[in-house]
Each structure stands twice: as structure tokens, then as C-alpha cells.
């Protein structure tokens, strides 16, 4: 067991190092940030000063070493464009992204699980087939098109919800939340909905597949024979046995959602990390791009490792499976 945990952790560290290296190699090759930060009249002296201040005058591997060392301490340097500490900039954007992802996950469970149960119980009913059909469409629709569609209908035509921004936020010191103000709650509806659509279809398909499997098993037949009402069989006995994979998938998908939120954030001008990243891409603001990549990869890797380990704790067969 210990060997397994160590192996998993070593793997996670390896992945993180590779990602950091990838980020560093690509970004150190991108243009000269000094040219973009100073105007054409800047003297050579000013250029050299800036170059030294950003650490761009050192050799490649040295720069990478410093980069990793600093990144491990949470120091990603200062933004080329804003001249501010990168981690601060990301940290103040993080709550927005996290709230969005959290609400989207919540919506996807609330909507997806019942849909999955219904389509599994009433397999041939017209509404089940309709839901199955819609789920293919839900998986196919590009998330930004969904977002634009929602804005067009609910903001431009009906005027029910705001189309961009986060509304008023409350500052809790270390966290800013939009969930405590009415305008903040109204603002999160459309982005969260558009982010969760894909998730809903995933949850629904997973619950359906699991339910179909469980409903065929012996203990369900036995429960039926005992005369337990169908409702109780479906929701208390069967559904409970399907929830484990749903929980793991939801946990693993949160990393993906945080990354994917950048598309939603761009559509709704939601002031999260993703929007910061996309703006940084436009201005080739390397430190922000690098920091964002590393942080998202870190969240991703941590979640995957935790899920893997939990599985190994629950299911001893998996411990041997890893060579």
C-alpha cells in the first residue's frame, strides 16, 4: 500500500515537473517581452535594467531552475504587462472561477442524476428517448455557442439575467463572493448553466448506465420479491449503489471544469482566472500564462491522485495493477 502511494506521488511530481518544463520551454521561446513592455524610444540602459529585473539575462537552464524553485514557493514573478505579482493577480481571480465551477457542478448533479434515473427506469418511454437524444446534442454543442445562445435569449430578448460580469461582490477578506448579493446571484445563473450543460449530459449518461447495471443484479430482484415499493427500490437501493462512480467522476471533472471555464468566462466576461489567462495570451504576458498553466495542472494532478488513492484504499485489486 505504501509503495503504491509513493509511486502515485512520484508520478504526480513527474507530471508536474514536465508541465512546468513544457510551460517554461515554450514561453521562453516566445518573442522578447522587453520589446513589448518598453516603447521604441527606450534607451539601451533602460532595456538592460528591465532585462535584469525580469531575470532574462541568465542562461536557459539557470532560468528554468530559478523558475521551478520560485514556482514551488508560489512566486511566479511579476506580470510583464501590469508589473504586479502574478500569484496575487491569480489569487484575486480564483474565487470567481471557483464559485462558477462549484455552482455548475451543483446544477449538473441536481439535474443530471434524476434524469439518469428516469431514463434508466422508463427505458422505452418517449420522454426517456427524448432525453437520450437531447444528451447527444448536449455533448455536441460547443460551450461558447450555448453561452451566446443563453445571452441572446435571456439577456438580449427577454432581459431576465445580466449578460456579463459578476454583479456586486462581498469581500470576506480572503475571499470575494458574489453569492451573497442579489445581483451576484442573478449574474451567475447564465454562466453556470452554460458551463454545466456538458456536465449534465455526462452525469445523466453515467447514472443511466450504472442504474441499468444495478437494476439487473440479484439484490434488486430480491428486494422486488420482498415486495418493497418500486420507488424505494429505485431511489434507496439502486441509486445508492450508483453514486460512487458519480462522485469520483464529479471530483475528477472539477479540474477540467476549472480549465474549461476559460471559454465560459470569455463569453460572459466573467472576471475569473480563465479570462485573465486569455487576456495574457493576447498580450503574450508570459508569467501569467505560465502560472495559470502550472496552477490548473496542479489542481488536475492533485484531484486525479486523490481519486486514484481513494480507489486503491477501497479496492485492493488495484494496488497490484500498477506495475
Amino acid at each position: 500500500m505504501l509503495a503504491f502511494i509513493i509511486k502515485r506521488l512520484a508520478n504526480a511530481v513527474f507530471v508536474m515537473l514536465s508541465v512546468t518544463f513544457l510551460a517554461f520551454v515554450i514561453f521562453s521561446a516566445v518573442g522578447d517581452p522587453v520589446d513589448q513592455m518598453l516603447n521604441e524610444q527606450a534607451t539601451q540602459q533602460q532595456r538592460d535594467d528591465l532585462r535584469e529585473r525580469l531575470g532574462l539575462d541568465k542562461p536557459f537552464m539557470m532560468q528554468f531552475g530559478t523558475f521551478v524553485g520560485r514556482a514551488a514557493q508560489g512566486d511566479f514573478g511579476i506580470s510583464f504587462r501590469n508589473q504586479r505579482d502574478v500569484l496575487d493577480m491569480i489569487a484575486e481571480r480564483f474565487p470567481a472561477t471557483f464559485e462558477l465551477v462549484l455552482v455548475a457542478t451543483f446544477i449538473s448533479l441536481i439535474v443530471g442524476v434524476p434524469m439518469g434515473v428516469i431514463t434508466a427506469i422508463r427505458r422505452t418511454a418517449w420522454y426517456s428517448e427524448a432525453m437520450q437524444f437531447t444528451s447527444i446534442i448536449g455533448i455536441s454543442l460547443p460551450s461558447f455557442v450555448v453561452g451566446i445562445g443563453l445571452i441572446l435569449v435571456f439577456s438580449v430578448w427577454l432581459g431576465w439575467f445580466p449578460a456579463f460580469g459578476r454583479g456586486e461582490t462581498v469581500d470576506l477578506g480572503w475571499w470575494t463572493t458574489g453569492l451573497l448579493t442579489p445581483s451576484g446571484r442573478m449574474s451567475i445563473v447564465l454562466p453556470a448553466l452554460s458551463l454545466s450543460l456538458f456536465q449534465i449530459t455526462l452525469v445523466m449518461r453515467l447514472v443511466r448506465a450504472e442504474m441499468l447495471e444495478v437494476l439487473r443484479s440479484d439484490f434488486i430482484k430480491f428486494a422486488r420479491a420482498r415486495g418493497i415499493p418500486a420507488r424505494s427500490i429505485h431511489f434507496r437501493h439502486a441509486l445508492r449503489n450508483c453514486l460512487m462512480p458519480v462522485v469520483t467522476m464529479t471530483a475528477m471533472q472539477i479540474g477540467g471544469l476549472i480549465a474549461f471555464a476559460l471559454v465560459t468566462e470569455t463569453v460572459f466576461q466573467w472576471p475569473g482566472m480563465g479570462l485573465l489567462f486569455i487576456q495574457a495570451v493576447t498580450f503574450v504576458d508570459v508569467p501569467i500564462m505560465a502560472a495559470y498553466l502550472c496552477i490548473v495542472a496542479l489542481i488536475f494532478v492533485i484531484l486525479n491522485t486523490i481519486v486514484d488513492m481513494t480507489y486503491a484504499v477501497i479496492d485492493p485489486r488495484l494496488r497490484g495493477a500498477e506495475k
Binding site: 508541465v19 477540467g256 480549465a259 474549461f260 471559454v263 488536475f300 486525479n304
Partner: peptide
């Protein structure tokens, strides 16, 4: 392959 799959696809594509 493992490393590539451990970064979300949108990010890889945007960066590249």
C-alpha cells in the same frame, strides 16, 4: 502521453 493527458485539452491547444 500521460503528461499530455494530464493537462486539459483546451489549454494544450491554446498554448500550442
Amino acid at each position: 502521453g500521460d503528461v499530455l493527458l494530464s493537462i486539459p485539452i483546451v489549454l494544450v491547444a491554446i498554448l500550442v
